[in-house]
Computed example of a mutant assay.
Amino acid sequence: MRAIILAAGRGERMRPLTDHCPKPLLPVMGRPLIEWHIEALARAGVRDIVINTAWLSPQFPQLLGDGARFAAQFPGLRLHYSDESAEPGGALETAGGIRRALDLLCADGDEAFWVVSGDVYLPDFQFDAGFAQAFAQGPLDAHLWLAPNSPHHPKGDFGISPQGLASNDVLPRYTWASVGLFKRRLFAGLPLGQKAALRPSLEDAIARQALGAELYRGTWVDVGTPQRWEALQPQSERHSD
């Protein structure tokens, strides 16, 4: 099963840090944030990872290459890039970016794939290969991992029904941790090369009872502000006020 790491955003709230460096390439705990995902996916057996890019897109292949630099630890790992910088409107948003990358994600005929945002830190998350295969063979269009709400998003996104489905009606609500499993059919009907947010596709899946969800209680940080990024630096490297 393949995976896509979403890394196309501008990171406006992270400026000036992101003026010259894409947010997923900023260092966290001594290495680029995106490498935490690459290595976690590779440990789970994923060998083809797509990275969608737009803002400062050349920096990604310059730093990460085609996967060969990880070969000693993860033989056969290959990185692919879906560069949205040449699109007329720039970055295509989450669903639009996934739609553009579908041929890369499903190149081997697989219908299911992992999705994780390149600007979240979740070092405890396990990309469970067995669970992924069961999902691929099941009826759901997507499965999300939700996290307890943080102070900057106190109302959350979805509840979890007793049947393990995402719900807009069940309380409490939790925040999507920006990681999940998805199937091609959720995006195949979207226009290619056009901006598209993910939420409408998720709402459609909820209406059809086709969106699974479960609670993730491991470490999770939305690295969305300089202050949150600073808090993830080793103590010796943090700036004093």
Rank of each mutant, 00 (worst) to 15 (best):
M1T: 12
A3R: 05
I5E: 02
G9F: 00
E12T: 14
R15G: 10
D19N: 13
K23S: 15
L33Y: 02
E39M: 10
A40M: 07
A40Y: 05
L41E: 03
A42M: 00
G45K: 04
I51A: 02
L56S: 09
P58C: 10
Q62Y: 07
D66V: 07
R69N: 02
A71D: 08
G76E: 06
E84Q: 15
E84R: 01
E87T: 05
G90A: 07
L92N: 06
I98R: 11
C106D: 04
A107L: 05
D108L: 01
D110T: 12
E111S: 14
S117F: 10
D119M: 02
V120Q: 06
V120E: 09
Y121W: 11
L122C: 13
P123I: 08
P123W: 05
A134K: 15
L140R: 13
A142F: 06
L146F: 03
L146H: 01
P154W: 06
K155H: 14
F158C: 06
F158T: 04
G159D: 09
G159H: 03
S167W: 09
L171V: 12
P172V: 08
Y174A: 08
W176M: 01
A177K: 00
L181K: 00
K183G: 10
R185H: 14
L186T: 03
F187Y: 05
F187A: 06
A188S: 15
P191D: 10
L198C: 04
S201Y: 06
A207H: 09
Q209G: 11
Q209T: 11
A210H: 11
E214I: 04
L215R: 11
T219E: 13
G224C: 12
G224P: 07
A231Y: 10
S236V: 13
R238S: 00
S240H: 15
